[in-house]
Design a protein around this nucleic acid. Structure first.
Length: 214
DNA sequence: GAGCTAACCTATTCAATCG
DNA sequence: CGATTGAATAGGTTAGCTC
């Protein structure tokens, strides 16, 4: 999935930002309530501190921290470096923790959006499905009426009738045009949707219904 | 165009918390 | 105590920059 589509293009800062991704073992953020899962450089590769001898415990963020992060997330779903540093200072968390929180939050947000989208589409499907069911029942009724009428004309004029089935249906149920179109559309139409922007709430899927000639 | 880098993603792990 | 939640990690992708 292309999450960059429709969003502002990513513009990296000219200076290195690698420090965002490396925890400070010297604890340059005093008062930090969450233990840092420091990446400790070994001979081969970075190994998370928690996987090593000095069992760092994961700690949850405080309510205040989450509240501020949440407010910031509501303002803007993506995190620019300046905001990351500002939040880092305000909350006493490592910039990396801010980035991780935003990443996880976006994941949760996306899951929720998909859930809502599923509910909406299911609802729409149910509506169209019911409509189709009603129309099918009406078609059966009309067909019964038609054969009854045809029987009458056959009896009266001896086997020939000018009234075609189509004409009878058309003239018998004026309001049906629209409805039968719905049935038609239900078979041939399609909907498309796109999560265009992180900051836009997902609207109803945009439906491209085929134009049905009258 | 290749290589580097930073930011982002999904999938996963695992400690903390809940029922 | 098993299920759920969420902080953190791993590894992959994308896009801008430099040479």
């Amino acid at each position: 999935m292309d999450w960059h589509h429709g969003t502002k293009p990513f513009v990296p800062r000219p200076e290195t930002l690698s420090f965002f991704y490396n925890y400070d073992n010297n604890n340059s953020y005093p008062g930090v309530e969450v233990k840092q899962a420091a990446l400790m450089e070994t001979g081969e590769r970075s190994v998370p501190a928690m996987d090593r001898g000095n069992k760092e415990k994961k700690k949850r963020l405080t309510n205040n921290q989450i509240e501020l992060l949440e407010r910031s997330f509501q303002e803007e779903i993506k995190l620019d470096p300046e905001r990351k540093m500002k939040l880092s200072r305000e909350l006493g968390l490592q910039p990396r923790q801010i980035a991780v929180w935003f990443q996880n939050r976006r994941t949760r947000w996306k899951a929720k959006q998909l859930e809502h989208l599923y509910d909406m589409l299911k609802h729409q499907y149910d509506v169209v499905s019911n409509e189709k069911q009603k129309l099918q029942e009406e078609v059966i009724k009309l067909k019964a009426m038609l054969s009854k009428q045809q029987g009458y004309w056959t009896q009266k004029f001896g086997g020939y009738t000018e009234i075609s089935g189509e004409e009878t249906v058309e003239s018998t149920s004026e309001g049906l045009r629209g409805k039968s179109n719905i049935e038609h559309v239900a078979d041939q139409g399609y909907c498309s949707f796109a999560v265009e922007d992180y900051n836009t709430t997902v609207s109803l899927p945009h439906c491209h219904w085929p134009v049905v000639p009258y």
